Simulated scan of single mutants.
Amino acid sequence: MQMRVLPDSGIWGALLNSCKIHSRMELAELALERIIELEPDDAGNYVILSNMYAQVGKWDRVANLRDMMMNRGIKKSTAYSWIEVKNKVHAFLTGDTSHPMYGEIYAELKRVEGLIKEAGYVPRTETVFHDVEDDEKTQMICSHSERLAIAFGLITTPSGTRLLITKNIRVCEDCHTAIKFISKVTQREIVVRDVNRYHHFVDGSCSCSDYW
């Protein structure tokens, strides 16, 4: 069967995302080649393939893609999340320590991390796309911007208050899993609006049915 029209960047992009889900590396490389011909400056497409390489430990290919992006002047968007509490917006970067309450925020992160691990959460360090030790990967995961925003919301709003978090890029797989556990152990509704869709977390489940 053949397509009646030539595939555009949207179709190739859908194929690239599907390759990530099904771990089809060679097909993903082909899809990226076609996307680059159509949209050479979209950083997100490079990042998807780079992440696939990182998941299987092909750090030389990760470096090659980063060099390609640098040579073409393409920059990955900095991830940040924000939450509004008492009519004031609080924004966080990954590993952020600039907030005046960062001590309390990280203490809450540690407390919640202990609770979700007791509930069965296991950090997915393969989602960290850096060639570092597993302990460092775990620390990086647990300080992602959406988790900092959630921790801030937990300590600054009354028990049972629904938390609304916004993130400028896609929520990572590990954070998606962690937030499901957080919603369960804290008995909070947590809504995360990322670049793709709304995720409504309630009692350990997400409205996206784990497809995001």
Rank of each mutant, 00 (worst) to 15 (best):
W82G: 08
N71A: 13
G120M: 03
E133M: 14
E113P: 12
E39G: 02
N87A: 15
F92Y: 10
E146A: 00
M140K: 09
M25L: 14
T138P: 08
V47W: 09
Y46S: 10
A119D: 15
W59G: 02
A151H: 01
S143F: 04
N45E: 00
T78P: 11
Q139K: 15
T125Q: 00
E84M: 04
E29F: 00
E108Y: 01
G57I: 02
E39R: 07
P40Q: 03
G153E: 01
G95A: 04
Y53D: 07
S81D: 06
M52I: 01
G44R: 13
S50A: 08
E113N: 15
T94W: 04
E104T: 06
T94I: 05
A119H: 11
G114F: 06
N71C: 06
E39Q: 04
A119V: 05
N87M: 14
K88Q: 08
A149K: 04
E26N: 15
F92M: 01
G114D: 07
I83P: 01
G103K: 03
F92V: 02
D96R: 00
V56Y: 02
V122M: 12
A151K: 00
E113M: 11
L32K: 03
N71Q: 14
M70L: 06
A107E: 14
A107V: 10
E133S: 15
E37D: 15
R111F: 13
A28S: 00
S23Q: 14
I83D: 04
E39D: 09
V85C: 00
I48R: 07
E29A: 06
I48L: 14
I105T: 05
E84G: 07
Y106M: 08
H144E: 07
A79W: 09
K117N: 12
M140E: 12
R111Q: 13
L148P: 13
A151W: 07
I105R: 00
L109N: 03
D131H: 10
G95N: 01
R34T: 09
N87C: 06
M140L: 11
S50D: 01
F129I: 10
D134Y: 06
P100F: 05
L49I: 02
V122D: 15
H130K: 15
P123S: 09
Y80L: 07
A149F: 06
S143K: 13
Y53P: 09
I36V: 12
P100M: 06
T97K: 09
L148T: 04
D134I: 01
A31V: 03
W82F: 14
K88E: 14
A79Q: 02
L65D: 03
V56F: 05
K110R: 11
I36Y: 09
I21T: 02
P100K: 02
N64L: 14
P40F: 08
W59S: 10
A91L: 09
Y80K: 12
